[in-house]
Amino acid sequence: TTIEWNGTKITVDNPQKAKELAKKIAKKLGLTVKVHGNTITIE
C-alpha cells in the first residue's frame, strides 16, 4: 500500500497500518484521506 502526499510516497506493507498512518498525517496537516485501491492519497 502506498501513501502519497505532496510528491512524497511511502510504502507500507500492512494496508491497515497504512490507513492509520495516513489518517494521522492528514489530521496533523488538516487534510483529507482518499483511498484508491492500493494507493492512499492525502489531499
Rank of each mutant, 00 (worst) to 15 (best):
G37R: 04
A22V: 03
T41C: 08
G37I: 03
N6C: 15
T2G: 06
P15E: 08
D13M: 15
K28L: 13
K24V: 09
G30Y: 04
A22P: 00
K34E: 05
P15D: 04
I3F: 04
T39Y: 09
G7H: 08
K19W: 15
L29R: 06
T41F: 14
I10S: 01
E4N: 09
E4L: 11
T32F: 07
V12K: 01
E4S: 10
N38H: 07
T39I: 12
T39G: 03
E4A: 08
G37M: 05
N6L: 12
L21Y: 09
G7Q: 07
T8S: 09
P15T: 05
A26T: 04
E20V: 13
K24H: 10
L21M: 09
T41K: 09
L31W: 10
Q16V: 12
K9F: 11
P15C: 08
I3K: 06
E4T: 08
T8L: 15
W5G: 03
T39H: 09
T32Y: 06
K19P: 01
N38G: 05
H36A: 10
P15W: 14
L31T: 03
W5N: 02
E20K: 14
I42S: 01
T41V: 12
L21T: 02
L29I: 04
T32R: 10
W5F: 12
I40W: 02
T1A: 09
I25V: 02
T8V: 13
I3D: 04
K34I: 11
L21D: 00
K27Q: 11
E43V: 14
V33W: 08
N6V: 08
A22W: 04
I25M: 07
K34W: 08
V33N: 00
W5I: 10
K19F: 15
T32C: 12
N6A: 09
Q16M: 11
V12P: 01
P15Y: 14
N14H: 05
K17P: 01
A22L: 04
K17H: 09
K34H: 12
I25A: 01
V33Y: 10
K19H: 12
T32H: 09
E4G: 07
K34Q: 08
V12E: 01
G30I: 01
V12H: 02
I10T: 02
I40R: 00
K27A: 11
T8H: 15
K19D: 03
N14P: 06
K19L: 15
K19S: 06
T32P: 05
G7Y: 11
K23I: 13
I10W: 12
V35S: 04
G30K: 06
K27T: 08
T8M: 15
K34M: 08
L29H: 11
N6D: 07
D13K: 13
G30L: 02
T8A: 09
K34T: 12
I40A: 01
I42K: 01
L31P: 01
T2H: 09
P15M: 14
V33E: 01
K27P: 00
V33T: 04
T11P: 02
K19T: 08
N6H: 12
G37Q: 05
V35P: 02
